[in-house]
Every structure is written in structure tokens, then in C-alpha cells.
Nucleic acid binder design. Structure first.
Lengths: 155, 155
DNA sequence: CTTCACTCTAGCGGAGAGGTAGGAACAACT
DNA sequence: AGTTGTTCCTACCTCTCCGCTAGAGTGAAG
């Protein structure tokens, strides 16, 4: 399961993605409100996202945070990895942070590695394929659809 | 990441799968040794597997544990779910244990659900496809290959 | 009736999750 | 220069769960 941190990070980066067009700065307080995340906790998450190179920040009045890259190039996998670490279910199945498992006698003869790797690859393909921009676009489309399905009164 | 419990459970069920042909009982001590798992801890794990209906047990001398079903019909996903719970990264993306997320305002408008669901489906497809029997077969095949690559001395 | 195994309850140390508090540093504006 | 609004940093808290162990109880076989 995802940690709350990671889910909050996704919601936060998503609202940053919405404000990305004008390259403006959004304050932690504003993000906290619109993404529904405890403010102080969000601050810690944002610093982590900054340390990972996803977000940049500026202090002072009119300061805040913003995405560094275009939302279309930031994948859900990027955000999750920045907060929760590798996607794989075992260290030895990770592509981005490969490491022998602590308790595995011999990595060569481990019978579980290949299936763990296959599962990771399958999930990673989905999460790397999907960008923050994709999510916004999809949400906008479904809003439109909902509007068509429930037309204004009188029609 | 998988918990140690789940990885131990996989190793344990795998050794049970090896001993499944004769429908015999394997003691926790023997499993612990051959799967390299702390014995007392393994006992707890085996109880959990029993409660989940994967394993049956018998007491007394010549007692022990064995798989209930044929290894070819027990998937890696079955074992993991029995120990760690749902595969999905969020409760709202789980197929076997669907539940609204605790902190999600509205499940209908959640913008993350579809990608979480897609990732879960992709990983679950792999883990449900792969049975304990498959793993044994694959390991046996790779043993044979290794043997061919390193032929006996004098050839 | 002993022996060998599972079974159950209890607990324990450590790590990490999920926050919170308070203040220091910094930038803008007046 | 001073005020204000923001990020940034350090420290701390509580709670849960993980990983694991101890020890007594229960059932089955010989």
C-alpha cells in the first residue's frame, strides 16, 4: 500500500500541475487547502519533493512552490518513487534501486526474483506511462462527459 | 515492499509444494531449515496460511503441514494476499478487498483511482498467472540449463 | 504415558508512519 | 529599517506494526 505521504504528494503535485501554465508560485497553505492535506505535514512532503528534484520553492511573500518540469513529463511513478522509494516488492526486483535482499541466501538461485521482477515491470509500465498532465486531461474529459449526461434543466 | 512474513510464506509454501506429490506432512522445523526461516516465526506464518485456507496441519509425531490444493492452482498472489493483504496500492483500487480510502473526500471524483487500478491490474495479472508449480518447473529447467552449460569434467 | 508435533497467548524492542510545534532564515514591500 | 508572509530546519510526540521469542497447553501416534 501507498503511504499517506505518497498519496498526499500525488494530490499536491496534481494541484501544482493545474497551476503550472502561468509558472506561478503556490503557497503550501493554498496547496494544503485545495488538496486537503495537513499543512505542516505537507511542508515536509514538499521539501522531500524538492530534494528529489521535482519541485522548486521560493521564500517570502508571493513565494511558494511549483513544478520544475512540465506536468506532461512527470509520471506518477516519479512522484511515488520520490516519496516511498522503489516500486518493486523486493529490493532484488527493483530496476531503479536494485539491491540484494537482506535475507536471501543466494541471489542467483532465488526462485522468486523473476516473478517479482515481472510484477514490478508490469506495474511500473503503467505508472511511468501516466503523467500528471494525463490525469488532468482525463479528469477534464470526464467532467465534460458528466455534463453531457446531466444536461441543464429544460433540455 | 513485501513484508518478511510474506516472503517467508512464499519460501515456505514453495518447499511445501516440493513435498506435495506424496501428500505427506512436513514439520515446521523441517520447513524452517530448508526455507531458512526462524522456526517460531514460521509457526505463526503457517497458522495464518492455515486460517486463510491454503495449508492444513496435523499434530503429533509424523504431523506437520501440507498444501491443501495442488501447487499448480496456488498462485503467488494467493500467498501474498493471505499474508500481506490486498495487492493494490490503495484500498479503493483493490479488486478483492475494495474499500473507499480513509482520507478521500469523494470516491467518484478521485483523480488517482483509475491509474492505481490499472497498476494493480497489471501486477495482479502477473502474480495470479504464476503458480507455485510454475516456479518449481522454472527452477528445475534453469538447473538443467546450468548443468548443460557446465558439463562434467572430461567432456 | 511418553514423545513429538502443532497451537495459543503474551510480550518485547525497534522502526516507521503520521503528524505537530516553534522558531530561524529569507524575500518583498512600504 | 521594519513588517509581513513565506519557506526551512530541528526536534519531538504518539501509535501501530514488524519481526521475533518464550512458554505453557493440546492433540495424535506408538
Amino acid at each position: 500500500m501507498l503511504t499517506s505521504r505518497a498519496k498526499y504528494a500525488l494530490r499536491a503535485t496534481l494541484t501544482l500541475a493545474e497551476h503550472h501554465a502561468d509558472r506561478g508560485w503556490t503557497s503550501a497553505g493554498d496547496i494544503a487547502e485545495s488538496a486537503d492535506v495537513p499543512k505542516k505535514f505537507l511542508e515536509a512532503i514538499l521539501t522531500q519533493l524538492r530534494d528529489q528534484g521535482l519541485v522548486e520553492s521560493r521564500r517570502g511573500p508571493a513565494g511558494g512552490h511549483r513544478l520544475i518540469a512540465d506536468p506532461a513529463t512527470v509520471s506518477v511513478a516519479d512522484v511515488i518513487r520520490s516519496i516511498d522509494g522503489p516500486l518493486a516488492m523486493t529490493p532484488c526486483a527493483s530496476a531503479t534501486a536494485f539491491r540484494a535482499c537482506d535475507d536471501c541466501a543466494d541471489i542467483e538461485t532465488c526462485r522468486l526474483r523473476f516473478v517479482m521482477r515481472a510484477a514490478r515491470d508490469a506495474a511500473a509500465a503503467v505508472l511511468e506511462q501516466c503523467s500528471l498532465g494525463d490525469i488532468l486531461a482525463r479528469a477534464a474529459a470526464s467532467m465534460r462527459r458528466a455534463h453531457e449526461l446531466v444536461p441543464p434543466l429544460g433540455l
